[in-house]
Design a protein around this nucleic acid. Structure first.
Lengths: 360, 360
DNA sequence: GCCTTCTGTGCAACCGTTTGCAAGAGCCTT
DNA sequence: AAGGCTCTTGCAAACGGTTGCACAGAAGGC
């Protein structure tokens, strides 16, 4: 047997131990080494050889090159994830749930942020395509964005939507039941007797906010003499600053609401800030209902009444949906809808409470 | 010229348009096409040819295959990022800052979570190696974890540490000035006259918490008759639940503290929960100081006195440090330290306030 | 008019795996 | 004993780019 001379590795040069080195050491052909190391193919190779190759691999510290394997296989074992906003604590749990199920199957998540901008979403999606991810999940889609995914489906890359759907797009989708969530919030306010209400909506071209709004309207319908003092729509990212801005604008109006429904908890924090700035107290002067139940909302001042969404669970479901599509791309684009739940805390009170307690 | 017959693409088969197709359409050699599309090499090619190739590429919708390019170039244009806890809102801003500077240079972040477990960190790092990331940033290191990075440095993969350092490891590091931060918190409590204090520390084997603690001790030193009722150390992830557990244990002791310093804001929320459960009010009965100034902490009940850290900035600095190391791996492992700042809100008050207001 | 220097392009060898195909060995049928 | 299995392994062609080198032609210096 011709022993290949050990390469005189230059001092300081990296030691790229490749499959070839393993094969040489184990005295087998590189293809045999490849199969011995692949659990799916190891059955074809004799037990003795497998053992020898494994030993050689661990002896010289072989780490497979996933990019080479990815090139050859046409699968990179990675999925692209695009969220709207890293800063929203809601997304943390979602990503955790998602990446837990992905990594259990040897996949890895490549995460990016769209900041609610169509051009950024497009750029991110392009990048994912170039990187040849095996699938894409988006929780950042706006209503007109379906076309941005076209290049992906042309390449047969499964696309799964989370949180925000794209009606009639045919993508597999995992949503919260936002209609129900909004409805719970609306009914709660109706039961408390609120008649002058403001909704602080997220961007109008986002499915989930639309459904929250529709649900809220349904839930509060029936309240006598209902006055809607919603003034404006979210211009950009529905974050603390935007919640504050919208609330300040609302308070500048002639008629002050007795209750506001913020489309997410971080906007609700902005609402609270605006109220504080205006010398108003919650819930005495104005009740506020948030949405999402992010971990800290139970300790806001006051603790926030909000709609709880199972975000980590949604992340997991997204992962499972995704994995199934990677396995079998022909699976239908079904829609999964997770339950929402109202959590009543101390930021809501009966309408008119301020009048009754004003002198107290 | 021999025109290669157009491939009879099967209906339903994907249309993998490759560089070869672009070259054929533009009537140039594939290598010429490659250079024409590479901004760094386009100078070598005549303007007319570049234009022709570009036109051909966009006409047939060519998207470069980054995994193939990565294999050949030995650079994947990706960096691995490992954080301790997706659920901690602190990390969101950090990741945002980091990925903004990375993506400006065409890099992408691959993010994973260690959940404070050494084995998970090891697994994540292995995965990064296999994926041939160009660099790794960790904000999840525990003190004994330096060895986990050895395989990376053996492969000349730059490692940058953020938030949590590894003393004497020689890695480039971007930290908050946690000693100073802790000191500010300690001095604040001293000035308010607190003498019975509890510290709710993060895991004892994490650099940043050690420095916070040392700083706190220095800051509060000089307080008369100082009694330390710190009872326990964080067993796992320093999150809300752990903060609550530690505070409950603290309250079960004989001597009750008049102030507590929680090593991060989310633990402080747990502290507040425990106090509420025990019928104690903040700051009347016990003052609490948090750490991090996560976006929501200004609206906790009560608004939290805390130490503000520029997390997004730290993320950006991490990115810059990283990029510089990718460019020139021989750069020294210098340490950057970002300033901390005390934000006094309403969760802290003079010691003894409870006695004075008890009947009020 | 010859030699050098550019420019612009083509040639072909990689990068590290995977995998269809084939071949040799050993064993079983009939 | 020949043909047909199964089992194990080797061979070599990809995958889709990148890049050092060579080469042809044009331009320029003397």
């Amino acid at each position: 047997m011709a022993q290949p001379p050990p390469k005189p590795s230059q001092p300081g040069a990296r030691a790229p131990v490749s499959l070839r080195d393993v094969a040489d050491l184990a005295q087998v052909h590189i293809s045999t080494a490849s199969r011995a190391l692949d659990p799916a193919q190891a059955g074809r190779i004799s037990a003795a050889t497998v053992k020898r190759v494994r030993a050689a691999a661990s002896k010289i510290g072989y780490t497979p090159d996933l990019v080479a394997a990815g090139l050859k296989r046409g699968r990179t074992q990675s999925v692209g994830v695009v969220v709207a906003d890293f800063d929203n604590p809601y997304n943390g749990l979602l990503i955790r749930g998602l990446s837990r199920v992905l990594e259990a199957q040897g996949f890895v998540a490549v995460v990016a942020e769209s900041a609610e901008q169509r051009t950024r979403l497009a750029a991110v999606l392009d990048h994912f395509t170039a990187r040849r991810v095996d699938a894409v999940v988006s929780t950042a889609a706006h209503l007109g964005d379906a076309d941005l995914f076209a290049p992906l489906i042309a390449r047969q890359i499964p696309v799964v939507l989370g949180v925000r759907g794209l009606p009639a797009s045919g993508f597999a989708t995992v949503l919260h039941d936002d209609f129900r969530g909004g409805e719970l919030a609306g009914a709660h306010l109706r039961e408390l007797g609120h008649t002058v209400v403001a909704r602080l909506r997220g961007p109008v071209d986002i499915d989930s906010f639309i459904r929250r709004d529709a649900g809220f309207n349904a839930g509060i319908a029936g309240a006598e003499q209902l006055v809607d003092v919603t003034i404006d729509d979210c211009a950009s990212i529905p974050d603390i600053a935007e919640g504050r801005r919208l609330m300040e604008a609302t308070l500048a109006q002639r008629q002050r609401p007795t209750a506001v429904f913020a489309h997410n908890d971080v906007m609700a924090v902005g609402v609270l800030q605006a109220m504080e700035g205006a010398g108003l107290r919650c819930p005495r002067d104005i009740s506020v209902v948030g949405y999402n139940d992010v971990p800290l909302s139970s300790h806001l001042s006051p603790p926030l009444t909000t709609v709880r969404l199972p975000s980590e669970l949604l992340g997991r479901r997204l992962g499972e949906t995704l994995l199934a599509r990677i396995e079998d791309p022909s699976l239908p684009g079904e829609e999964l809808r997770l339950p929402a739940e109202l959590v009543i805390r101390r930021s809501t009170a009966r309408a008119g409470a301020a009048r009754r307690t004003r002198s107290g």
